[in-house]
Design a protein around this nucleic acid. Structure first.
Lengths: 336, 336
DNA sequence: GCAATTTCTGAAACCGCTTTCAGACGAGGT
DNA sequence: ACCTCGTCTGAAAGCGGTTTCAGAAATTGC
């Protein structure tokens, strides 16, 4: 913004005001439409702006207005197709309200999150924390900053912060119900990132499943197709007839490994995904999975944050139900 | 930043300075290490900062320093796995130099790009335009703003802007060479977004291929697996023995359709991807494709921008070669 | 022991914009 | 004609930092 050597001189509001023969205040009023200005002056200002190619400096506006016009979003991993879908929706909402979106990624490193959020808070009106992996204490501390903040896919008991989450527990319960009703008694779960609340919620559903005669063994895995591929054999060793997954990527990775092993799905083994990441066209396999509209999710999240910024009021926590999609990778267990 | 009702009062540098019993200038010096300060004062400042929980206001710093500490990146589509990989690398470079990264997405809408870039320029020290779809004139106009800008995967003849691109032409030439040497004479190309320079570069390679006896028919498609799936039949109608694709997603989509049609790959038909998006685990198909390290690409791009910001000098344009990966979806054409 | 430096600190200017405040001006009322 | 009122405009005071500048204090040199 300062004139650096080798860079063209910055055009400021006062350049415009002198060119138009009016005061800077008037230029500001014209550009923001905050007060009625004589139409001849309006024209002169617009002409000067056009001619000089003036663009208001965002930092100066932010400082003067007390708002940056930016919201910040933190995600654990951009490579997970789940998040781009969310980001698109959030960005759309943000732009509709005249704000830009700043994205940061922790790369699944919980230790990195705190600094990133702090940085976001320094330059954003509000922040949206997507599936934060940091521990409860850190989250509480950040919430204590009283900076507008919305929690996305993470519920922290006793912490009163506006939030929107998916009912992962309910989703996985549906999965278990489906599998159990098909007659399965033993299943393996390819577990996601250990610090993930969403993962813990999925796992929590297995307690309820036990009451219905389905025993689920948790197998360490991860969130990628490679992890699913690598963990598939371990899951089989548990002697199960069904494999449940942290997400679709993991499920497809496992399917890939199963095919190599000559295990046919769903005849020999059932496989269930999670999230419905729309990879069926890529994998040409119709995966049984469970999902929620990510577009809706992102939009609602953006709106909650927007409401918080405008009214200062916390919206009620939103908790979205998932839908089960019965497709072609589940069937009754083989009759031995 | 201003104290809004219902929000906690902002803590400013002067709060710190009075608490520590020093001037604001000294606080600034301590925090930025820009000048030697008596160690007792340093301690008092740090104590006050810690106690008050002070964080410098980014907008004020930006205004005073003449730098935002932010770079902006524009991508056409976050859902395309190509870009997250790039963003990760760019972000890493940016943070290593103490800058944050702001991401905007045009959603493959060329008309939206101009405003987005303009917005980025108002709040970023420099911008990285990834595969911009806008036309040449707009790009020239933006370059004329003299705002630090790096072009990524787009070469504009006669426009002197630092840039980094992949040799898509060379990559597709390798693909054609491979296919031609296997004995194919007629192939179809599932074309990407029409406004994409990268797509045009790939197509340009087909002229050279003709000289080697390979005739490539261009079929309108897109950049997604669904598009590939939908366009596959049309490609077959062209009576070809090989299908080349804009990217791997398209190729996998086509493969999915081919399987439905009972066409076996590579026995009946060869299929080649582009980009090596690491979806093999998902698709459990080893796709012949061509690629370049996206991590390296992103990093180099980030470094070029950084150099531009620091020294003001344009780095030489970078042009990275692609590597062919011979896998299992290509073979000689069926001998009729 | 005093002048000449050198070091450190605080006051104040400044970054570019918004917004308050008060003044100028014209219209309307009596 | 004169006064009041409302409307539009410009000067100036912030917003929250950084940086210059000059003065005070501490060194140094002779």
């Amino acid at each position: 913004m300062q004139n650096r050597p080798g860079r063209p001189p910055r055009i400021t509001i006062s350049d415009v005001s002198t060119a138009a023969g009016v005061s800077a205040a008037t230029v500001s009023r014209v550009l923001n439409g905050t007060a009625k200005v004589d139409s001849s002056l309006v024209d002169r200002v617009h002409d000067a702006v056009r001619q000089l190619g003036y663009r208001p400096n965002a930092a100066a506006q932010g400082l003067a207005r007390g708002e940056w016009g930016t919201i910040g979003v933190l995600v654990p991993d951009l490579a997970n197709p789940y998040f781009p879908d969310i980001l698109k929706a959030v960005s759309t909402v943000a732009r509709a309200h005249g704000r830009r979106m700043m994205v940061m990624e922790s790369d699944e490193n919980p230790a990195a999150e705190h600094d990133l959020v702090e940085d976001l808070m320094r330059c954003c009106d509000g922040v949206l924390l997507c599936s934060p992996r940091m521990d409860r204490a850190e989250l509480v501390e950040l919430a204590g900053r009283k900076h507008p903040m919305v929690l996305f896919n993470r519920v922290v008991p006793g912490l009163s912060v506006p939030s929107i989450s998916v009912d992962f527990h309910g989703g996985m319960t549906q999965v278990c119900g489906h599998v159990a009703q098909l007659g399965h008694r033993r299943a393996a779960y390819l577990s996601g990132p250990s610090a993930s609340w969403a993962n813990a919620e999925r796992i929590r559903a297995f307690e309820g499943a036990r009451a219905f005669g389905l025993e689920v063994t948790v197998v360490e895995c991860g969130a990628t197709s490679q992890a699913g591929y690598d963990a598939a054999s371990a899951a089989l060793d548990a002697g199960v007839t069904a494999i449940l997954s942290y997400n679709d990527l993991v499920a497809f990775g496992a399917l890939s490994r199963l095919q190599e092993l000559g295990i046919s799905v769903p005849a020999d083994l059932s496989v269930v995904g999670f999230d419905d990441l729309s990879l069926d066209r890529v994998a040409h396999t119709e995966l049984t999975t469970v999902s929620v509209s990510r577009d809706n999710l992102g939009r609602r999240g953006g709106e909650i944050l927007e409401e918080l910024l405008v009214t200062g009021h916390d919206a009620d926590p939103v908790y979205l139900p998932m839908t089960l999609h019965l497709r072609k990778t589940t069937a009754p267990p083989p009759t031995i």
